[in-house]
Design a protein around this nucleic acid. Structure first.
Lengths: 177, 177
DNA sequence: CATACCATGTAAGTAGTTACATGATTAT
DNA sequence: ATAATCATGTAACTACTTACATGGTATG
């Protein structure tokens, strides 16, 4: 995945919602959008610096407590238009999803391979755990209609993640026999 | 995706089925397993060279026509055991699927956003085309039960890809309203 | 005879991970 | 006081893409 620099748009989009620090952004990747994009702090901090040199964002320094410095980034007007350009442009390519389990399945030669049941059982556990976690998050973050309306995009993405796990589990159940 | 070198296992697994040239391998990525892993020839050829220095594969030179040289790679016994180690080891981590469309959705603020219908329509077209293509491939490659039995892993992976597109389309249909 | 495909390679660059490094604050 | 978390950064490396480069073969 070395080509489009989608990270920059995500950072701009997140800063377009509200000013944030690098650490705040890092946490968004760990939580809400982590299901569909990952970024470590070691990638986020340099990218924020680069975006600032491009005048797409600016920062001010805040002090937490007595001496802990943090940089709060804000999107600039040109940052907003650069973000909107991406946001409302066609999304033609379906980005690759890589699935190591499916690849291992590819090398199975027979329906009766003795390893198949254990492999399916393992994935079922894994995806069940993930689904449970996502459902718990949904219940926590969206307890009522007002919270959904206030964070509609986040809701959509979480719903999609839940849907994806449910379908994956359904496939595991039917494929394994 | 910079960490596990899954490509090496895929190359070994494919050579474990039968000896192949780099170009043969390149085509497998374009066709059968391209739905779940991608690799360009510029990544495949150097990796084959590396695997040979590790004594996991060897090659002989063949001549096509009168002078076109090609290298046919064969897996070695240590290559087979290295492959099997991966193949039958637990697959604990669910690898990230990156979806640019879902990320764009994340930044939608309201259910009534005027851009939503066009965005969903575009994705519906995209995934419908992909599904059509996959179904055509299935009909072509697996015309009868014998072809399924002979390439069971390939069948499983293609079925999963079809299933995934169907579920994605189902979600697009219900989420868009 | 030209186009598409077969066949192999390298170079340069971008994206992303892991590890190294440091220090402050909050909760237990 | 100690562990978890807040907060920011860089260095080294691996994975992957795009572009450059070359030449043979088969089909119409």
């Amino acid at each position: 995945m070395a080509q489009k620099n989608i990270l920059q748009y995500l950072l701009l989009g997140l800063l377009n919602q509200a000013p944030k620090t690098g650490y705040d952004l890092k946490r968004v990747f760990e939580n809400e959008i982590g299901e569909f994009w990952q970024a470590k702090h070691s990638q986020i901090y340099p990218e924020l610096k680069r975006l600032e040199t491009e005048d797409l964002i600016t920062h001010i320094e805040l002090i937490s407590g007595t001496k802990l410095k943090k940089k709060q980034y804000t999107i600039t007007p040109s940052g907003v238009s650069y973000f909107n350009e991406w946001r409302y442009s066609p999304t033609s390519e379906i980005l690759a999803s890589k699935d190591e389990f499916i690849l291992k399945l590819y090398f199975i030669e027979s329906k009766n391979d003795q390893h198949l049941p254990a492999m399916f059982a393992e994935q079922t556990t894994l995806h069940t755990d993930k689904l449970t976690h996502l459902l718990a998050r949904k219940a926590l973050v969206f307890p009522n209609q007002a919270t959904i309306t206030a964070n509609y995009g986040h809701y959509l993405i979480l719903e999609h993640a839940i849907n994806r796990e449910q379908d994956y589990l359904k496939w595991l159940a039917t494929a394994d026999c």
